[in-house]
Every structure is written in C-alpha cells, then in structure tokens.
Amino acid sequence: MDVSTFCALFAATCFTLVGLWWNVVQGHDDWMRRRARAASSAASTSPSCCRR
C-alpha cells in the first residue's frame, strides 16, 4: 500500500466516523444542555476576581 492510498483510506474512515459521531450527538440534545448547565454553574462559583 502506498502513501496516497493510505491517506485516502484514512481520510475516508475519519470522515465516516465523524459523521456517525455527529448523528449520535444530534440525537441526544440533553448532552448539550447538561454541558452548558455545568459550564454556567462553574462560572457562577468562581471567585469574583476571576469573572469578566
């Protein structure tokens, strides 16, 4: 297998896996809400000198 064939196969595999992952993430809206809620609670518990 030469380098160009390897790169083409690797790129196609990565593209497919990212597409599958994106479909799974889109199906779970609660994952995104939970992460945003955790980020906002972390910001509210930081010291006032660190807030912008």
Score class of each variant (00 low, 15 high):
residue 4 S to G: 03
residue 20 L to Y: 03
residue 50 C to G: 00
residue 24 V to Y: 09
residue 48 S to I: 07
residue 43 A to F: 09
residue 31 W to P: 00
residue 7 C to K: 12
residue 42 A to E: 03
residue 7 C to Q: 12
residue 52 R to M: 06
residue 25 V to M: 00
residue 48 S to A: 06
residue 52 R to S: 10
residue 36 A to M: 13
residue 31 W to G: 02
residue 44 S to Y: 05
residue 25 V to Y: 02
residue 30 D to A: 14
residue 40 S to A: 13
residue 42 A to N: 02
residue 46 S to Q: 09
residue 37 R to N: 08
residue 20 L to V: 10
residue 38 A to D: 13
residue 11 A to N: 09
residue 51 R to Q: 09
residue 1 M to T: 11
residue 25 V to K: 00
residue 40 S to V: 11
residue 4 S to E: 13
residue 16 T to E: 04
residue 39 A to W: 11
residue 7 C to V: 15
residue 45 T to N: 05
residue 38 A to F: 14
residue 46 S to N: 04
residue 13 T to Q: 12
residue 15 F to L: 09
residue 16 T to N: 01
residue 39 A to M: 08
residue 47 P to C: 04
residue 27 G to I: 07
residue 41 S to I: 10
residue 45 T to R: 04
residue 24 V to G: 01
residue 16 T to I: 06
residue 26 Q to G: 00
residue 28 H to C: 06
residue 17 L to W: 04
residue 39 A to G: 06
residue 31 W to S: 02
residue 42 A to S: 02
residue 9 L to P: 03
residue 41 S to Q: 11
residue 1 M to N: 10
residue 37 R to M: 08
residue 6 F to W: 11
residue 32 M to W: 04
residue 47 P to I: 04
residue 18 V to G: 00
residue 14 C to A: 10
residue 14 C to W: 08
residue 24 V to S: 03
residue 29 D to T: 08
residue 18 V to E: 01
residue 36 A to C: 11
residue 40 S to C: 08
residue 47 P to W: 07
residue 36 A to V: 13
residue 3 V to M: 08
residue 49 C to R: 00
residue 10 F to P: 04
residue 9 L to Q: 09
residue 6 F to S: 07
residue 26 Q to C: 02
residue 38 A to L: 13
residue 29 D to C: 05
residue 21 W to M: 00
residue 36 A to N: 13
residue 13 T to Y: 11
residue 10 F to N: 14
residue 47 P to H: 07
residue 12 A to D: 15
residue 10 F to Y: 15
residue 19 G to E: 01
residue 8 A to I: 11
residue 5 T to N: 13
residue 15 F to M: 03
residue 23 N to K: 05
